[in-house]
Design a protein around this nucleic acid. Structure first.
Lengths: 207, 207
DNA sequence: GTAAAATTTTACCATTTGGTAAATACACGA
DNA sequence: TCGTGTATTTACCAAATGGTAAAATTTTAC
């Protein structure tokens, strides 16, 4: 009997929890927390509403589960930024990884964006405990590179904000990007080139 | 008798419509379209729910009114980008105007972001009819500058996306920015300097 | 001041919402 | 194949939702 189960889950349990979370990701990322309904999630998952509440304690539980799982994936590209590597390469590769992620996992990007947009009411603590320490640490790495003259002088915090903003834009504002570029245009190639060019220019040391 | 009124509005009408739209902007920008409730808007406006429906045809009418009014304001900084001006100055000033707007009108930025995030279900037509023509026109201006060697070679479409993304980030992701910079830090000064530096570097012609 | 028009309130209503209880169907190891 | 725990369905519920009808109040024009 699942819900707050401690024992090892059955095959059915594993499968259905995945199905529900996938359906919930669709609905939450499209309508936000309050705009999403359990009926819609149930319908999309092909299960009945009470059946969904057999696997999760409630709406908030599903949302929180999604956000927690997402946080790890989301932070991963930044974790991989290597203080020992070549600064230019490290940062440009980070941009690339973030862009890849935005284009591979647009629903996750939108779920995250929606939560932050609404003031991070259910994720504030996670930001403080998971994101902030990593952010501070990597900012110091970049600041070090900057101070050592390996990249141009730059504000590390705002640099990271700019990387997040420009890459996630292609997922979060896809509806707008599609209208403006034309529905048939695939933005990936051109976006990748543009971002590489832009952040190269930012990091390049002036002579 | 308002609602779909044609005659010139009374003082009370003018005032109450403004009060309602302001309250609705709070609620819609925080919870998205589906997450917002008329009761909440009414409560925030200090009016009763039926009284609100005396001034607007319904929830969607309020939302649509907000979005229509916003579109003009939102496009204005781009309209002002002058094809006859100095390219560097024009683009950097545009960045500054967008940043100012994000920080002055964060609710409007979030309302817009929320609508796009959800696939622009109520604004798709406006994007096609209002935004796209302006976007295309200004892209050609920038492409012209680029081709004439007045700024570095760059993809105008993605350059504009990057400007939008980086500036609006400070409004749309304010909850995250606040956590990461510390609640006491005002990002305006540093953000402004960073963006100026970054887009300067991007536009500068390599020797 | 008074009548007509504009505004606001009161009292509703049908539907949708998140969630529950209990009965039923199913899986699976003995 | 049988019994036991697992999974699912059926039938609900109270609260919240968007919206309406009509009465009551206030404003405005004369």
């Amino acid at each position: 009997m699942p819900d707050g189960d401690q024992k090892k889950p059955s095959r059915i349990q594993t499968r259905n929890r995945l199905v529900i979370l996938d359906a919930a990701l669709n609905v939450f990322s499209q309508h936000g927390y309050r705009g999403a309904t359990l009926d819609q999630i149930a319908s999309e998952a092909g299960l009945s509403k009470p059946n969904i509440l057999y696997y999760f304690q409630g709406k908030e539980d599903i949302h929180l589960t999604l956000l927690s799982q997402l946080m790890e994936t989301w932070l991963d590209p930044l974790v991989e930024l290597d203080p020992e590597g070549d600064p230019q390469t490290e940062i440009l590769d980070y941009v690339q990884r973030k862009l890849d992620m935005a284009l591979d996992l647009p629903r996750e990007s939108r779920l995250f964006a929606g939560e932050i947009l609404q003031g991070a009411p259910r994720m504030g603590p996670h930001l403080e405990s998971d994101l902030k320490p990593l952010f501070d640490q990597k900012c110091e790495v970049i600041a070090g590179w900057s101070a050592a003259g390996k990249i141009a002088p730059i504000n590390p915090q705002h640099l990271i904000f700019s990387i997040w903003a420009t890459t996630q834009h292609y997922a979060d504002f896809a509806a707008q990007v599609t209208v403006l570029l034309g529905a048939d245009t695939d933005p990936y190639q051109t976006a990748s080139e543009h971002l590489r060019l832009m952040f190269s220019a930012v990091l390049r040391i002036k002579n």
